[in-house]
């Protein structure tokens, strides 16, 4: 048994002393460390773009949607709990987040090319942008809203009559999701003339 162990060790020592294998090990070790650094850095970088400060670092966002959002319940309310931009716009879990981030690079492109550099241009493009958000939320059953608002824990006796009435029927049955009834909770709305449920 002892003999076998010694053989094992010497065999490896010999292996390592050959130049070719040393190179191999160095490459492996380097790759391993670089992997950690890259992965960590990537995720840290990703997190940095996942803050409100980043979202409104370009004035298109700060002067338009942020200004509007400051007047709504998700910015200031009696309990002081806030929902920030990424809470509503970026999925929490990794896969969905990456997908959304890649889509968001298109928005960066819009910034670099001056696509929406004035309030007028922003308003002109708002319908399209809003529709994209509505569609996303309809398709994922308003997943980001539900990260904070859980139907199972809603106390209907604490809600208003209108809220309880609609939540205990259409929402309970799943025929409609949050965004179907709660458009425009955080920003001004685009032209709503042909949107379902609006006048």
């Amino acid at each position: 048994m002892a003999q076998a162990n010694v053989n094992f060790v010497t065999r490896y020592r010999q292996m390592l002393s050959r130049p070719a294998s040393v190179a191999l090990w160095v490459v492996l070790a380097f790759g391993f460390v670089a992997g950690i650094v890259f992965w960590g850095g990537f995720n840290t970088g990703l997190e940095a773009t996942n803050t409100e400060a980043f979202c409104i670092s370009c004035h298109e966002m700060e002067n338009n949607v942020y200004e509007e959002y400051r007047e709504t319940i998700h910015f200031s309310n009696r309990s002081g709990v806030r929902a920030t931009c990424p809470d509503c716009h970026v999925p929490k879990d990794w896969t969905h987040k990456i997908v959304r981030k890649v889509q968001a690079s298109k928005e960066l492109w819009g910034k670099m090319t001056g696509f929406i550099d004035t309030r007028e241009k922003f308003q002109a493009n708002r319908k399209e942008m809003a529709q994209r958000e509505w569609q996303r939320m309809e398709e994922n059953d308003s997943r980001e809203c539900r990260n904070c608002h859980n139907y199972d824990y809603m106390d209907f006796s604490e809600q208003g009559r209108r809220a309880a009435g609609r939540h205990s029927t259409a929402l309970e049955a799943g025929t409609e999701t949050c965004i179907d009834c709660h458009k425009g909770i955080a920003h001004e709305l685009p032209d709503m003339s042909d949107v379902k449920g609006w006048h």
Binding site: G160, G184, P190, H199
Partner: peptide
């Protein structure tokens, strides 16, 4: 009922929804 945030303008009419 409360009407906080119910906007009425050229683009949309919350009351009529």
């Amino acid at each position: 009922h409360q009407v906080r945030g119910y906007n009425v303008n050229l683009k949309g009419h919350k009351c009529l929804s």
